[in-house]
Simulated scan of single mutants.
Amino acid sequence: MTTASTGTTEHPHVEILRTIYADLTTVAHYAAGDIVLHRADRTAEDPRVCRGIQAVLAHERALIKLAQGTLFMDVEHIAATEYFGAVLGVLRARLPRQIAMPFCGLWRFEGGRIVEHWENAYAAAELRQLFAIPTPRSATS
């Protein structure tokens, strides 16, 4: 069963997510200290989990650096409630080569703070290859 709200007021978490996608490093302002991030380049054999604000920030900064400052999250739709958020859009970068890849970010909130985030890229293997994303030793489990 699908239901739709008839109200036009956005949940405050929508604005939080909009802010984060405009500048990935702002996640620290809204995250719980023990936030868990499930990276887009994860596999069943290697779950690539970042734990804690510092590990999440290191991951976001690494993505920005690998794209040589050309990374842009083109947000198309955001839906959020008290407990969850979903963001659909296109990840774009010009370097190390041009890419435009659909993504879906899923977020879990507790008490207004982000406690968990799942990065989902349409072609995670291609993204992994493009960026050769490093895994910080202290950030994974």
Rank of each mutant, 00 (worst) to 15 (best):
R42I: 01
L91T: 10
T3E: 15
D74R: 12
G111R: 10
G85T: 04
T8K: 13
R42E: 04
H77C: 07
H117I: 07
I20T: 04
P12F: 00
R97M: 09
R39D: 09
H11T: 14
Q98Y: 12
T25M: 05
D74K: 09
E45A: 15
G85H: 03
R94W: 00
E126T: 12
V49H: 05
Y122K: 09
H117R: 08
R97Q: 13
N120A: 11
E76G: 10
A125W: 08
G52C: 08
A124W: 05
G105F: 06
P136Q: 03
Q54V: 12
E15Q: 14
G52S: 07
S141H: 14
T6P: 05
M73V: 10
F131G: 08
P136Y: 02
L63W: 00
T8G: 07
L24I: 07
D34T: 09
E45T: 13
I114N: 01
R97D: 06
A62V: 08
E116F: 08
G105L: 06
D23C: 07
T26H: 10
R128L: 07
A32Y: 05
G89C: 10
T6Q: 12
A22L: 13
A125Q: 13
G52E: 07
G33C: 01
S138G: 09
A55M: 02
P134R: 06
L17H: 03
A62H: 06
M101I: 12
M73W: 15
D34H: 13
Y30C: 09
A124I: 02
D34V: 04
T70M: 02
S141Y: 14
T8Q: 13
L24W: 07
F84H: 12
A121K: 04
T140Q: 11
F103Q: 00
